[in-house]
Design a protein around this nucleic acid. Structure first.
Lengths: 160, 160
DNA sequence: GTGTTCGTTTAGAACGTACTGAACGTTGGG
DNA sequence: CCCAACGTTCAGTACGTTCTAAACGAACAC
């Protein structure tokens, strides 16, 4: 059976997001919502378009909603609701990486506490890493702000 | 059975690195090498200290070596070699995140190509994300350089 | 009040992955 | 030459995870 280009794209996004910790099925859902037409789709549409069970779509959407990647909007005529990806979904996802850095920095701190003498040569393997992650932790939020301000400015200019 | 604080630390690093895509066992090895005494350890030492099979340690070390996180050095008296963590191991790991960003940006580009009209309102969900990841991709290397220069300067001052 | 459609939950099956243990080189000493 | 120590490879097992399918619940039409 031949898959449409859209469908294949969704599959690829699924694979990529799976490698980043999400499950393939949920990644597929997100990938599909990025390119589908119309951009808002019902559970039944998603289920049949992607060949996933209703159950998978239902729980998947809840997970994606919880992560702030997708939102459900009331469907005007029909009963129930439809889902659509938030315009900043992937940005949300990327920004969250900062939390990982914090976790690693904490691990480095704990390791240093274990070595007992932070300044000994033995502790170097941990010191450099701790300083690095502390640096990243401090700078990344600045970077995100910088993007926000630069981006809206560019948008205002009306040119890419 | 009671685990030493060092051993437990290694376990925790294993769990954390597992959540980042590495296997628990290999993460444990890295965690142990960050705090063990002496800092250089043989395969047999690692195997018995961490309760891992020789096989796991052998392949694990090769993987970590391949990633640039660990190096093997010739043992002076005895036969064979010993392993030690590189001082910049975790930095190496963190810096590699940039590649993920590039992959996501490419996915966004491909999605835009699929929508066919980059400037349509429909394409907004992808445009913003693409621009974001392009921005990150451009800025992160600068950030890494900045750390390198700032850090060696601080080290030179002899004060933290 | 009853029937129908839409959505959720959960038990279970299928799958992939991580780790072990044992067999197999390989290198140096007596 | 033979033995011993050290490391590697690989088949198999045990485990967790992901997805499905079917039972269940809720909301609206008539």
């Amino acid at each position: 059976m031949e898959l449409s280009r859209e469908r294949r794209y969704a599959e690829e996004v699924g694979v990529k997001l799976a490698s980043l910790g999400m499950t393939p099925a949920y990644g597929k859902l997100l990938g599909w919502l990025l390119i589908c037409d119309p951009p808002s789709q019902s559970l039944a549409q998603l289920s049949s378009s992607l060949g996933l069970s209703k159950g998978s779509v239902s729980t998947g959407m809840r997970v994606l909603e919880r992560l702030g990647l997708v939102r459900r909007v009331a469907a005007p005529g029909t009963r129930g609701h439809v889902y659509e990806v938030t315009p900043t979904a992937l940005i949300e996802l990327g920004s969250r990486a900062g939390e990982q850095y914090a976790a690693i920095r904490e691990l480095m701190e704990r390791g240093l506490a274990l070595l007992d003498d932070e300044d000994s040569p033995r502790a170097e393997r941990l010191r450099v890493s701790r300083d690095f992650y502390a640096f990243i932790e401090r700078e990344v939020p600045k970077l995100l702000d910088q993007f926000k301000t630069e981006y809206v400015r560019k948008e205002g200019e009306g040119d890419g």
